[in-house]
């Protein structure tokens, strides 16, 4: 009961009272609806050739057709699904890994901390984007590979914050009590410390979504995307490769890029609202 009450209070603050959160929530809700009802909203099958190639926007094709005669509007609508899929799976995987390793480093300390902190330190020094690009190039074009590669680099940030949080939570008296009562390390980590840092990790999933979406779009733009999954980045790649601007088909390039920015903004705003709720020091900035 108590949990439900605090959850609903958190939801109210994050999504209604906080202006950033409300705006982010509205953006994501609207795009989420598009993703769910893509089959009904899209006028055509995005993989089907429905008209002549390189057509300018018209009543029949509101955003025109692409280089092989597929409807761009339908491509864009279906692309929403890929964005949500990448934006939610990659950071979720990253957060789970970061959470477990961060808890271990923070709570178990000693050799665990030495190893995990060392790995974090080195991972942070390796330039991620160039490495993501070569990895994606060698692994071959598949959405799953892209998601795994993104997650492989995103867990580091989560682990670092979780470790720091765990270090401060583990000094609290009730943890001492649990230890005295003979609770096992894993029980203390997952039952007693985890609930304290869970809200923060949710903020990380939401904030990580933006960078995951941008990375997938970037890889697709460079021609490393999954050809069977039409994402916004891939539509942009085709528009770029076929010189859409020079052909006067500017909607082809403008719309998908704009949508990447909008969904990214939605996730960032919602993430900032959660962070402000979790971390009262940030919240007080608003009041000032």
């Amino acid at each position: 009961m108590d949990f439900m009450e605090s959850l609903s209070r958190a939801t109210y603050y994050i999504m209604i009272k906080n202006k950033k959160g409300l705006l982010g929530f509205i953006i994501l809700l609207a795009l989420g609806m598009v993703a769910v009802f893509a089959d009904y909203l899209a006028p055509y099958d995005p993989y089907e050739i429905v008209g002549d190639p390189f057509q300018p926007p018209s009543d029949k094709f509101p955003l025109g057709t692409n280089d092989i005669g597929q409807d761009i509007l339908s491509e864009v609508i279906h692309g929403t699904r890929i964005s949500f899929y990448v934006g939610l799976t990659a950071p979720t995987i990253a957060t789970i890994i970061g959470l477990v390793l961060g808890l271990m480093a923070g709570y178990l300390g000693r050799i665990f901390d030495d190893i995990i902190s060392g790995v974090i330190d080195i991972m942070l020094s390796i330039p991620s984007l160039p490495l993501i690009i070569v990895l994606a190039a060698y692994l071959g074009p598949s959405l799953t590979n892209i998601i795994l590669v993104i997650a492989f680099f995103e867990w580091v940030g989560v682990a670092r914050v979780v470790r720091a949080q765990t270090l401060s939570v583990k000094e609290r008296p009730y943890i001492e009590v649990a230890k005295a009562l003979g609770a096992s390390s894993s029980r203390i980590m997952f039952r007693h410390i985890l609930p304290n840092i869970a809200p923060l990790t949710i903020a990380y999933i939401i904030l990580g979504a933006t960078s995951a979406i941008l990375t997938e779009a970037g890889l697709s733009f460079l021609g490393l995307g999954d050809p069977t999954a039409k994402s916004w980045g891939q539509i942009l790649n085709h528009a770029y490769a076929r010189n859409a601007f020079a052909l006067g088909l500017w909607m082809w390039a403008i719309i998908p890029g704009l949508l990447i920015a909008v969904i990214g903004m939605g996730f960032t705003l919602l993430g900032m609202a959660i962070e402000e709720y979790v971390n009262p020091r940030l919240k007080s900035y608003e009041a000032k």
């Binding site: 979406i213 970037g218 980045g233 942009l236 403008i254 890029g257 920015a261 990214g264 960032t268 705003l269």
Partner: peptide
């Protein structure tokens, strides 16, 4: 700042 944070580089470059 929040708005441009999520703008893809290549999109702005193309524009």
């Amino acid at each position: 700042a929040v708005l441009v944070y999520a703008i893809p580089y290549y999109w702005l470059a193309l524009t």
